[in-house]
Design a protein around this nucleic acid. Structure first.
Lengths: 260, 260
DNA sequence: CAGTGGTCTAGACCACTGC
DNA sequence: CAGTGGTCTAGACCACTGT
């Protein structure tokens, strides 16, 4: 019986640890396409037999691949080459007013374009004092309306967002309602006379906290984007700060930069 | 003697694995500031004594923290709470012509502004056929000049970049020279009559490959940004594609979006 | 049920660090 | 040198999956 392991062996004399050599060989097999998306890797028992090593050695090798986001272990089933989820490419003009005119919030509209099913759940509305990080960006230290929600694509959670708006602006308006109506809160802000002028986005990436991994059902080895967007109206006032955590393997962010 | 472990114990009856409980308690101590940046965690031996568990259990707990990017193990010295490196905030206008006029390449100029020492090394120039990913963005399938280099900040490598330029445009010009002269290759492109009009950037994030981790001296648990920038001249021709891998903990990317 | 991965124990030897 | 983490062995019992 022929497997991906044929002819592979470790060099006991090498400086490189045995579990790293095993990981190297499996990684190469994946990158070369000898193991394809969704395909099962040899089981721990098969690797132990093939390489003649202890179980911990094999598990350390497999864990390396998992940490790198290349594989996914399923209890009782085996270890598979990880399938990449469909990627959302976020365009730099995704908050342009012309896209809002259709009466749909940005997330829903984009998802429909690519034929994916979009869902929003875990919507919560609160009021609190602006946390320092937010107050600084809003240039405002009073109470804020906090809208948090989670977005899913084809039933897979991909993004958790929390919006902060000055209470003196948003309280008692549809913005403080779980369903803000057609066009989302940006449309409502414009209804209230705060015509939007520009947005800034601050993008960072890191490994998720435990809570984020749970909320977004993240697999090990998948980092998150943290995207902090600030919306400014025509008068230059910051009217919203949106703090978003996104599963990084589900997104490519597109931006446009001026040369002048 | 008082340590962060005082009063901490695991619940053997809990559903949560013992090593996860130990990791939870150490993680909480870090987040709460009972263990501060650079401070040493209890040694493996101390954790084994305190919790009364096997070494593997303790090591699994410590590895969880390491892959979350919270700690850093140093052979022979101990495990420390990871220090965050100085963060570079990349402005959305960093390639604007006015910044180039000073005669400095973008990386050097920005670094000097924040008082950091910038270095560029591992400069290599090649010529090859455009890889598909690049050819697509350049809208050109012929030979390209490939400039690869690594950037360091205060002696720490933070970024590896590879630029691709159509050979019919760049060959035999200073662009194909290791040192392209004042203002970098963007200044040279403009010298050649390709006045730059705009850039697009495509940002993704993932865990590094082995090669990237080595080149950027990345610690485990630190993801990378992959940033693909395409430069267009006034005629709308793509004149350069720059493929960059950046240590994600060293950067925040700032962008500006239009609302209209 | 057999086969899979998840957790845990109790050792061993090694390489690196700092005194 | 003693103390630290890095690697490895050889078991054990468990929970989950598919037949």
């Amino acid at each position: 019986m022929s497997t991906v392991l044929d002819g592979l062996a470790v060099d006991q004399a090498s400086d490189r640890a045995v579990f790293r050599q095993i990981a190297d060989q499996l990684r190469t097999a994946i990158r070369d396409g000898r193991l394809t998306e969704g395909e099962r890797l040899p089981s721990e028992a098969q690797l132990i037999d093939h390489y003649g090593v202890a179980r911990m050695t094999v598990r350390n090798a497999l864990q390396l691949l998992e940490i790198e986001g290349l594989t996914r272990a399923e209890h009782g089933r085996g270890v598979n080459v990880r399938k990449r989820p469909p990627v959302r490419r976020l365009a730099s003009d995704r908050f342009a007013r012309r896209h809002r005119k259709a009466g749909k919030a940005a997330f829903i509209a984009e998802s429909e374009q690519v034929g994916a099913q979009a869902d929003v759940d875990m919507i919560k509305i609160n009021e609190m004092l602006a946390p320092p990080e937010i107050a600084e960006r809003l240039n405002y230290t009073g109470p804020v309306i906090v809208r948090s929600r989670r977005y899913s694509l084809d039933k897979t959670p991909v993004e958790a967002a929390t919006s902060y708006l000055p209470a003196d602006l948003a309280k008692g308006t549809p913005i403080a309602d779980p369903n803000p109506g057609p066009g989302g809160i940006y449309a409502r802000l414009e209804d209230l006379g705060h015509t939007l002028d520009r947005f800034t986005e601050e993008v960072s990436a890191r490994m998720p906290t435990e809570a984020e991994a749970r909320q977004l059902a993240l697999m090990p080895g998948i980092p998150v984007f943290r995207l902090i967007r600030t919306a400014y109206d025509l008068e230059g006032r910051a009217v919203e700060v949106c703090d978003t955590i996104m599963s990084a393997d589900a997104y490519v962010l597109n931006y446009e930069l001026p040369a002048h």
